[in-house]
Amino acid sequence: MLSEQSRSVVRATLPAVGAAIGEITELFYRKLFTDRPELLRDLFNRGNQATGEQQQALAGSIAAFAGLLLERPDARPDALLGRIAHKHASLGITSEQYKLVHQHLFAAIAEVLGDAVAPEVAAAWDEVYWLMANALIATETRLYQEAGVPEGGTWRPMEIAERHEETPDVVSFLLRPADGGPAGPFTPGQYVSVRVELPDGARQIRQYSLSAAPGGPQWRITVKRAAGDPAGEVSSWLHAHARPGDVLSVSAPFGDVVLPEGEGPLLLASAGIGSTPVLAILGHLAATGSTRPVVVLHGDRSPEAHAHRDELRALAGALPAAELHLFYEEPGDAAPEATAGRPTVADLGLPEGLTAYLCGPLPFLRAVRGDLLRRGVPAEAVHYEVFGPDLWLGQD
């Protein structure tokens, strides 16, 4: 909870800080990487830094957290914090690194805002930072304990057991622990981080959803080759070089957007490679003989571009109370049952009391979530997973 004296200062200065937060975060990363270049090389996503998306995500999370402290002083924004904490744990972030972030972030604030950062302003925003940082540290400590690993020690070697070309741009890998042990459990909807060494010596990290149901001796990830340089440098490396017998450095599973418990109805809506966590959820429902009502919606460019298309059909068909709706921008003759165009829930029959799980590009998430809210689905019943920095943090 923010102290009374800090609350009034933060409320008065939030417009100025909010207006400058983009400039502040850009300068922060520049200072951080000048001081510690190995962090950009081996921890932060160079592609997201190059596009500015990571700076936008950090700015959004700070502004959202400060706003929530003012709007709901007695509540902790667990949804906002949980999403960040899971990503941090998948990267192996440690509590000591928050001190380094504090050092360079407040140096950037002082440089951008200048004389406006009076001692009481600095103290108030320092309180905001450590409220957020300590809450994240506590959550990440719990996540590491639940994963059975020490702080920051999330990595283990996993061997590629099989490689499957799903489409020209999508490949899947079956992974097994290099020590011969079991892959271990996870909750459907979670992801793992994969760290690879690139030709320039950088060890870059990306997250990939576990795309098959838990319970087997192996895990499966499905990787779409991303366009751009350096945006797609890890996926391009995996497509070009990763083969059965190779060993990858893989994190424990993390992610808070997972299969909801209970027997209530579900909407599983995805677009493009966003279908991967949906496959794990459907696979688990089918393996456990679930009779939950499930509406499955997926949109893609074409049937040929839809990775795991036959598997999605089979899993939906194995559930007695599931219905599948496919949307293709170019449907062709391979999927006569599909609807031409972009995916939408506007005209679908949806059961009362559903929990919605959305995964895909941000425009898709915005469109489908907007349709659901207009149809009276409560905001708290709509959960989303976005690949890459979450530029939607704190938004309604």
Rank of each mutant, 00 (worst) to 15 (best):
A252M: 15
H164C: 04
G353A: 00
L39G: 00
H164V: 12
K99T: 02
Y208G: 06
P293Y: 10
L266V: 01
E233D: 12
A118G: 09
G370D: 08
R374Y: 08
P185M: 11
L312S: 10
Y129L: 04
A240C: 08
V386M: 07
L391I: 12
I273F: 09
P217S: 07
L198Q: 04
R313I: 14
C359W: 07
A124L: 01
V121A: 02
A318K: 12
G370N: 03
D179M: 10
L297K: 09
E38F: 06
H298Q: 13
P293E: 15
H88C: 04
S172W: 13
G216Y: 07
A212K: 12
L131S: 02
A64M: 07
I205A: 00
R292Q: 10
A75G: 03
G299M: 05
P293Q: 10
L362S: 15
Y144R: 06
G349W: 10
A12I: 03
T222I: 04
E38S: 04
L39F: 02
G264H: 05
P363I: 13
A226T: 11
A212Y: 01
L348R: 09
A50P: 00
D333W: 13
R72S: 14
D169Q: 14
T276W: 00
A212L: 14
D126N: 12
G360L: 13
R142N: 11
A269P: 06
H325Y: 09
W125N: 01
E23K: 15
Q54I: 02
G60W: 03
L373I: 12
E140G: 03
S302R: 06
E197G: 02
R11D: 15
E162A: 15
A89H: 01
A107S: 13
L32E: 02
H102Q: 06
A122R: 12
L14T: 12
V149C: 04
T167D: 00
H88L: 03
I21E: 08
